[in-house]
Simulated assay, not measured.
Amino acid sequence: MPSPGLRARVEAIPGTPLPHGILGGCASVLDVTDDEIHQLNGVEWMSLGCCPVRDTDWCADESPGEESPGPAPQKEFCSPQTEHAVPHTIYAGAVCSTMGWSYAEAVEQVKATLELGEQRAIEAAFWRDNLAMNAVDLTPADGPVNLAAGVAALEGCLAETYGGIGVLHVPAGAAALLGCCNILSLATGTPSTLAGNCAIIGAGYSYENSGPGGVPAEPGTAWLYISGPVIVRRGPVDVIPDRAGPSIDRRYNDQRVLAERTVVVSTTCSICAINVELCP
């Protein structure tokens, strides 16, 4: 048995972000360049794929008769809509005694913290300010449905309003149940459904777990969302302050360092939501 004494300091236990979160394989992650930095103020675009494609009968009625078949059916036109996404700034801050850590060690700490936790923060912000604020609630009047029925309703909603490959947004707390029921598969390397829609499994989604309008889920239930494709635009990591001197709070002899970055998360067309029961 070692003799009692001062504990030895070792390296911190490293962490790995969850592999199927919003920064995983489902979303397109774009690290903006200096020439694109203005995109971090928010972006807007003309929607693509939200207008329906319809069929028509091109054969005119040539059968003889005394009455005219009337004018040919009129084709319908759809006006694409302007969509937009707003920025969020995520951050990690560290405070430590100037007697214990150097400025360089504090910078290393906040950068590592941000790298590990940024995905969760991005998911929470996107769920709270985009998904929950813009979704159509498909939950029946009788209340939550089982997971398979919930995913089926969401995919039907997406197919009717978009038709392309979309994204299922799943709180991490519901992921295991989706797997045991073969609703999600990892055959392609990312979680996806039989219909081909990708799934983001988010710790930040679990943290929020709220329905349209931000109403919290009842115990034993979870909210699932579906949307069009997702794009995450990320700015560079900024360390504040950028040198040791201003980081010191001389009133308490503490050192405070912040690492932050701005992100803009966008999706397109309709967003649908449904409340499901968390039971196998």
Rank of each mutant, 00 (worst) to 15 (best):
R9N: 04
G15E: 07
G15S: 08
G15K: 08
G24W: 00
V29G: 02
D31P: 00
H38L: 08
L40Y: 06
L40G: 00
G42P: 03
W45S: 02
G65K: 01
E66S: 13
E67N: 11
P69Y: 07
E76S: 11
P80V: 06
P80A: 10
Q81A: 15
H84L: 13
V86F: 13
T89H: 07
A92R: 15
A94G: 13
C96R: 14
M99G: 05
G100F: 08
E105D: 15
V107C: 13
K111A: 03
T113Y: 00
E118D: 14
E118C: 07
D129V: 00
N130Q: 12
L131C: 09
A132Y: 05
D137C: 07
L138P: 05
T139Y: 13
P140L: 12
V151S: 05
L154P: 02
E155V: 05
Y162G: 08
A174R: 09
C180Y: 04
S185P: 10
T188V: 03
T190R: 11
L194G: 03
G196Q: 08
N197A: 10
A199F: 05
G213Y: 06
P216Y: 02
P216L: 04
T221N: 08
L224K: 02
S227C: 14
G228L: 13
P246N: 09
D249N: 15
R250F: 08
R250I: 11
R261Q: 13
T262S: 10
V264P: 01
S270R: 08
I271G: 08
N275R: 15
V276W: 04
V276S: 05
E277Y: 00
